[in-house]
């Protein structure tokens, strides 16, 4: 990107950088919204296949592929009911606070061997950990601002779960950092030239994937929006476009997390026979998305005590052991 930035005749550098950054952000937003729309359709198709239900097939296009478009129009045109009892600003800003972290994840994902990432930060993993923890704040804003019992219970569960799984998530990546010797995602992908990190870091990958599912509140960790007990959790008091945006940010988050997992463990852009390109990254990421959907429509929902046991008594010891074993292996070798 630096070669592009140099020597744009007549235009000051900061303005050029600004325009470039704005273009990147627009591109990411467009890509994220398009894929989120696609993923809502894919999710229903996968659900229909796995559980022998009827998926979207009526609205139009082959296999009902226009369904997300119809849903989008519906969400925009629906009334946005703001309950009287809500804490107005906290409630109204919560969708934004939940939405922006998932967009910021895309900034550091390595796309292509020639192009690199949109911005190759040398502290990318710390940046990711910092940015994604804002989601907790947004969830609590939604739960507290709604002034609704279901919302608050859902938000409290979500926070307890997300903070518990944050530790195994962060620790499982330490093994990758040890192997690559860098926090930059581009360096980590380049270090997987010979072998994907999923082979030496299999434990790390398993912990990372389970913990990410919990961070995303996906089944089997969807007790925060358990319909049978607390209606829709912290989403209960949202309607119309606000609810739509929050559901969309969950799908974008699923894709973003899968992209990060593909970069960390599945070799990112690396493909066989020297065909390294962004296509491989997307294929791997969408495969991980599919696995998450597969899990969702196969497993039942966990209770909060089971969730906590899994996080603290299984994933945390395993991830600590993974760090120690990886360190010992590098030391001995």
């Amino acid at each position: 990107m630096l070669e592009l930035a140099a020597g744009q005749g007549g235009m000051p550098d900061w303005l050029w950088n600004f325009i470039l950054a704005a273009l990147k952000a627009t591109g990411v937003l467009a890509f994220a919204m398009a894929s989120a729309g696609l993923l809502t359709w894919v999710e229903r198709k996968v659900a229909a296949r796995i559980q022998r239900r009827r998926g979207p097939e009526v609205v139009g296009g082959p296999w009902g592929v226009l369904q997300p478009l119809a849903d989008g129009v519906k969400l925009f045109a629906k009334e946005d009911v703001m309950p009287r009892a809500v804490d107005r600003w906290v409630w109204a800003l919560a969708p934004s606070v939940i939405f922006f972290p998932v967009i910021m994840v895309f900034l550091v994902i390595p796309l292509d061997p020639k192009f690199g990432a949109l911005r190759d930060l040398n502290i990318a993993l710390v940046y990711l950990a910092a940015v994604t923890s804002f989601t907790v704040l947004g969830i609590f804003m939604a739960g507290w601002g709604s002034n609704n019992k279901y919302s608050l219970i859902g938000a409290m569960r979500a926070i307890a779960m997300i903070v518990s799984y944050e530790i195994p998530l962060v620790l499982s990546v330490v093994g990758v950092v040890l192997a690559a010797g860098s926090l930059s995602l581009v360096d980590i992908v380049e270090a997987q030239d010979e072998m994907w990190f999923i082979i030496p870091q299999f434990l790390g990958f398993v912990v990372f994937y389970i913990a990410s599912l919990a961070e995303l509140n996906r089944t089997p960790f969807d007790l925060v929006t358990g319909e049978s007990e607390i209606v829709m959790g912290y989403l209960t008091e949202y309607s119309g476009i606000r609810a739509g945006l929050m559901i969309f940010s969950e799908y974008i988050g699923l894709l973003a997390t899968s992209l990060v997992a593909a970069s960390l463990f599945l070799g990112g852009w690396h493909g066989p026979f020297g065909t390294d390109s962004v296509v491989w990254l997307l294929l791997k990421a969408f495969f991980l998305v599919f696995v998450a959907m597969w899990i969702r429509w196969t497993l039942p929902r966990l209770r909060i005590d089971q969730v906590m046991n899994l996080g603290w008594k299984f994933l945390l010891p395993v991830s600590i052991a993974n760090v120690v074993l990886t360190g010992a292996w590098i030391m001995v070798r």
Partner: peptide, 11 residues
């Protein structure tokens, strides 16, 4: 700068 722009765009 990119980080800031992304933050503003996402928000």
């Amino acid at each position: 700068l990119d980080v800031l722009i992304f933050l503003i765009a996402g928000f």
